[in-house]
Design a protein around this nucleic acid. Structure first.
Length: 446
RNA sequence: CGGGGCGUAGCGCAGCCUGGUAGCGCGUCGGUUUUGGGUACCGAAGGCCGCAAGUUCGAAUCUUGCCGUCCCGACCA
């Protein structure tokens, strides 16, 4: 993309309403525009990041064998009356009345609807196990939205639902989700720690939240410092293997790690040596639940067993806060100059800064770089504006592309351009061809 | 939902107390200049001063109500 033809409304000054780094930077980098309290438009740059995160979630869900579908944002109230949650949910649920005076609602979650879909099409144990998911906008009418997209009212979320014949099968689904979530977050360049959590209004017997450590997190967390050394890495997991999934779960959840909701100081002190006890704050970016027959029983989601008996299915639900992750990623990856995107989610793979627009050598070298990078399947952002070098650098730093190729007449005289890493600030001079090769190599494994 | 702010140009703000021609900086547009970390100068455009009612000869300014929005707390992914 050529910046002169793109839409990137960056702000020099910080909007007064933004309090935390991610919100401030998303506004300044022209990623979002607030339309109402907790409701945002996603401008092109922000939309690119959102879509990349969404894409990673899709890929990892399907790798784990889960099946995508798409349910509507608006739901009829009667499904919720059936489950008993229409009255239980409270004012957080946005309730609307249509022209025929029918009660509908903007879905805060989809357990009822997915259960309805399941019960009308599945009736045999032979169709199990089944895990369906979608990535869809939700609405929760928070009393006090804040922190930009981290706690908006409208938010994009992946929510998935597993249907299993037995409790054991459902617990495997739970474990499988935990494993796939670890892998999902790691691909985004995030460490998200599974922590034992309260079940909240979704309800359930077993639940873990995934938290990204950040000072601006909404939850207090307590954990064994050894847990931050764990890496999922690129291990090859058979998602159908009960043992393998169970093993990963044990590895990642055996050490003490809890949010303040479930924190038990006595247990913490007993299980964790003092030197390894950590107290910090975290941003919740996902949660997994096992809730058994909580919805299948009242809503009649049953299947016939081998013996012909009809039994309610065992279910769980699992969420990843896709839009919230954009904010969480920035909270975990920024400095005083702006955002620093991990390679896995960056809106553009690298930036090209032309220090002297209009200089034949510089313009030509930039065009060549631009084409060469694209030929490698990369997506560069070429700053071809008639701006001073300082302004271009400041913009690049702000929007946080992990790599920058700087091209100027001075370097070109020696046949070199400069490749700079946004995170470390280190830069190296090399030929344009070498820079293209290096950037391509960096992204080859991502 | 309790407590406290704030709504004036795209953004950041002053003016309000003490009523009388709506301002500044950034950005934008035109020009000159400059060109390796937000360059300098000249010029220009851009406002129902959140909305409504009231007081007044006269309201951005005072009063009342409403709306929006932000912060702290409670709540929440």
């Amino acid at each position: 993309m050529r910046l002169s033809r793109y839409f990137l409304p960056v702000l020099k000054e910080t909007p007064a309403d933004a309090q935390i780094a991610s919100h401030r930077l998303m506004l300044r980098a022209g990623m979002i525009r607030q339309q109402a309290a907790g409701i945002y438009s996603w401008l092109p740059l922000g939309y690119r990041v959102l879509r990349r995160i969404e894409q990673i979630v899709h890929e990892e869900q399907q790798r784990a064998g889960h099946i995508p579908l798409l349910m509507p944002t608006l739901q009829p109230a009667d499904l919720w009356q059936e489950s008993g949650r229409y009255n239980a949910y409270g004012p957080e649920m946005l309730r609307i009345r249509d022209r025929h005076d029918r009660d509908i609602l903007y879905g805060p979650t989809n357990e009822e609807m997915i259960t309805d879909i399941f019960r009308s099409h599945v009736s045999s144990y032979k169709d199990l196990p089944l895990t369906l998911y979608h990535i869809q906008w939700k609405f929760r009418d928070e009393v006090r939205p804040r922190f930009g997209v981290m706690r908006g009212r409208e938010f994009l979320m992946k929510d998935g639902y597993n249907f299993d014949l037995t409790r054991e099968d459902a617990l495997h689904a739970y474990n499988r989700h935990l494993v796939s979530y670890l892998r999902t977050y790691e691909r985004m360049g995030l460490q998200a720690i599974p922590m034992r959590a309260e079940s909240g209004p979704i309800g359930g017997d077993d639940t873990h939240e995934f938290l990204v450590l950040a000072d601006t997190g909404e939850s207090g967390v307590f954990y064994d410092s050894e847990i931050t050394d764990l890496r999922f890495g690129d291990r090859d997991i058979d998602y159908d293997s009960v043992e393998q999934c169970q093993g990963v779960l044990e590895e990642f959840t055996s050490r003490y790690a809890r949010t303040d909701d479930t924190h038990d100081e006595a247990v913490f002190q007993e299980q964790v040596p003092e030197a390894r006890r950590r107290e910090a704050r975290g941003i919740e970016v996902g949660q997994i639940f096992y809730f058994g027959t909580k919805y299948s029983e009242p809503m009649g989601a049953t299947v016939a067993t081998q013996g012909g008996e009809r039994v309610p299915v065992h279910m769980g639900s699992h969420g990843i806060g896709v839009s919230r992750l954009v904010g969480a990623l920035i909270e975990a990856n920024h400095d005083e100059n702006g955002i620093i995107w991990p390679e896995g989610v960056t809106p553009f793979h690298c930036g090209i800064v032309n220090l002297k627009q209009g200089d034949a050598a510089a313009d030509g070298a930039c065009e060549d770089l631009y084409k060469a990078l694209r030929a490698k399947g990369l997506d560069p952002l070429y700053d071809d504006r008639e701006e001073r070098a300082g302004a271009k650098f400041a913009t690049m730093d702000l929007i946080g592309l992990p790599w920058r190729i700087t091209v100027g007449p001075r370097g070109l005289k020696n046949g070199v351009v400069e490749l700079t890493c946004r995170r470390t600030g280190e830069s190296e001079e090399m030929t344009p061809e070498a820079a293209v090769a290096r950037v391509a190599e960096i992204y080859a494994g991502i």
